[in-house]
Design a protein around this nucleic acid. Sequence first.
DNA 1: AACCTCTTTGGAAAGATTCTAACTTTAGAA
DNA 2: TTCTAAAGTTAGAATCTTTCCAAAGAGGTT
Lengths: 140, 140
Amino acid sequence: MKYQQQAIEKLKEYDVHPSIQRVMILDYLLSCNVHPTVDDIYSALLKDTPTLSRATVYNTVNKLVEVGLVRQLKDIDKKEARYDACLETHGHFKCVKCGKIFDFKVCDKLILDKKLEGFTVNTKTVYFQGVCPECNKVNS
Amino acid sequence: MKYQQQAIEKLKEYDVHPSIQRVMILDYLLSCNVHPTVDDIYSALLKDTPTLSRATVYNTVNKLVEVGLVRQLKDIDKKEARYDACLETHGHFKCVKCGKIFDFKVCDKLILDKKLEGFTVNTKTVYFQGVCPECNKVNS
DNA sequence: AACCTCTTTGGAAAGATTCTAACTTTAGAA
DNA sequence: TTCTAAAGTTAGAATCTTTCCAAAGAGGTT
Ligand SMILES: [Mn+2]
Ligand SMILES: [Mn+2]
Ligand SMILES: [Zn+2]
Ligand SMILES: [Zn+2]
């Protein structure tokens, strides 16, 4: 509930009615930095709200993505999409050994190809895969 | 059938038996630069091979991805995954107006965050969204 | 030919997401 | 406060994509 107030304000700012469920879900997305799946969100919130339905979680994250309050990440997971409430352009690194997902900064001068002159870039998705330092240590 | 021979050689190189269907599908992926979905592939090849099964297309693209001959792209499309036989690291730009997908070069010095020191990067996925020059013209 | 292995097929099944219709809550007017 | 219309939620059915599986097919070897 750390980001409850912030969630309500953001929802209002984006003209989305701040219903209890929407606030809960956005609050959760803002406070956790684990890039959860729909099922992660559902499971986490079910404890406090046993009446919550999966459909509401789907409806809500879809709405949040639609208005631009949340980003959907599909490449990271083989099956389920993941969600990120951090709007700033940043990259994701997934360690293929431990499965952890790390955020990292992406320079704005990412565009280095002359080909992209004339293109208007709205969103940038950067996703790397490899091995994290921890897992690198273990193997060496 | 332009890349048939190349497809056969690549399959052999990656220790995948070059069956008729696999050659067809890889040939198609190599010759078209549209980043097709499974259904695109299936529909396109069905004309010449009416016995082809959807399951075979799934099996084949999964095998090709598994051995590393083809890349799967999930973020581009809301629903279906897309496939790309171009193995060189490159970015994708999708125009939100016309839906076209453009390839562009990505500089190797993409990693600019100190945070990524100590990480071993194996694969890089870069996906931008925005408006292409053509569609930019139309609106202005 | 008989046998072995790898591949494809087609249908069933699973898994994720969306749709639908009934029910509940909200916001604003009376 | 009470009423009403609109918006949101629920549960389950439906749909859509993808995988699984068992049977049939193709090729190669004894
Ligand atoms: Mn993130
Ligand atoms: Mn490409
Ligand atoms: Zn790791
Ligand atoms: Zn365009």
